[in-house]
């Protein structure tokens, strides 16, 4: 019967502890700490949550409770090109559901998942404030508007090529 051990890289431990400290290790700042940590790591693995729990002196179960409650937080790494399909009212009535279905088919992943080579991840969100362009899809920071299901495979192809070029260079 020995203690439970987890292994994490030194700079990651230090950075997360620094984030916690910047909020005075206050448990009431948990959501802000999680935001900053996700910004840094791109996601919130169990190990990161354990480190946060320890620093804020709360249980890991409570941290996990908050992480699993909010759809913004993710325990899986996002793809290099995160795809977010707007499912707000305007986009929805203009066929956003069909766009999501097409992305699922083309990328072969479900909403909330990342594809095998880590390039694309798929998410849905509510209203990006560009209803005039409905239906809208965000890839990274870039807005693609007035889409039809047929456009999806072109978008995917475009980003895949861009990404391949970057990888070569």
């Amino acid at each position: 019967m020995s203690s439970i051990k987890i292994k994490v890289k030194k700079e990651i431990i230090e950075k997360i502890e620094e984030i916690c400290k910047s909020f005075d290790n206050q448990s009431g700042e948990l959501i802000n700490v999680l935001h900053k940590t996700q910004e840094y790591l791109g996601y919130l693995p169990a190990e990161a949550q354990e480190i946060i729990a320890r620093a804020l002196n709360i249980s890991a179960a409570r941290v996990y409770g908050v992480v699993s409650f909010y759809s913004f937080f993710s325990m899986k790494p996002k793809g290099k090109c995160p795809v977010s399909v707007c499912m707000g009212t305007a986009c929805y009535v203009r066929g956003a559901d069909k766009i999501v279905d097409e992305f699922k088919k083309v990328l072969n992943i479900a909403v909330g998942e990342t594809d095998n080579d880590g390039v694309f991840s798929l998410a849905s969100l509510r209203c990006v404030g560009a209803c005039g362009l409905a239906p809208v899809v965000l890839v990274g920071d870039k807005v693609h508007g007035r889409l039809a299901a047929d456009d999806v495979k072109h978008i995917v192809k475009e980003y895949r090529e861009q990404f391949a070029k970057l990888a070569e260079a």
Binding site: S3, K5, I6, I13, E50
Partner: peptide, 9 residues
């Protein structure tokens, strides 16, 4: 000692 240990990888 059963405390959770975070080790440096």
């Amino acid at each position: 000692d059963k405390k959770l240990v975070v080790e440096v990888d």
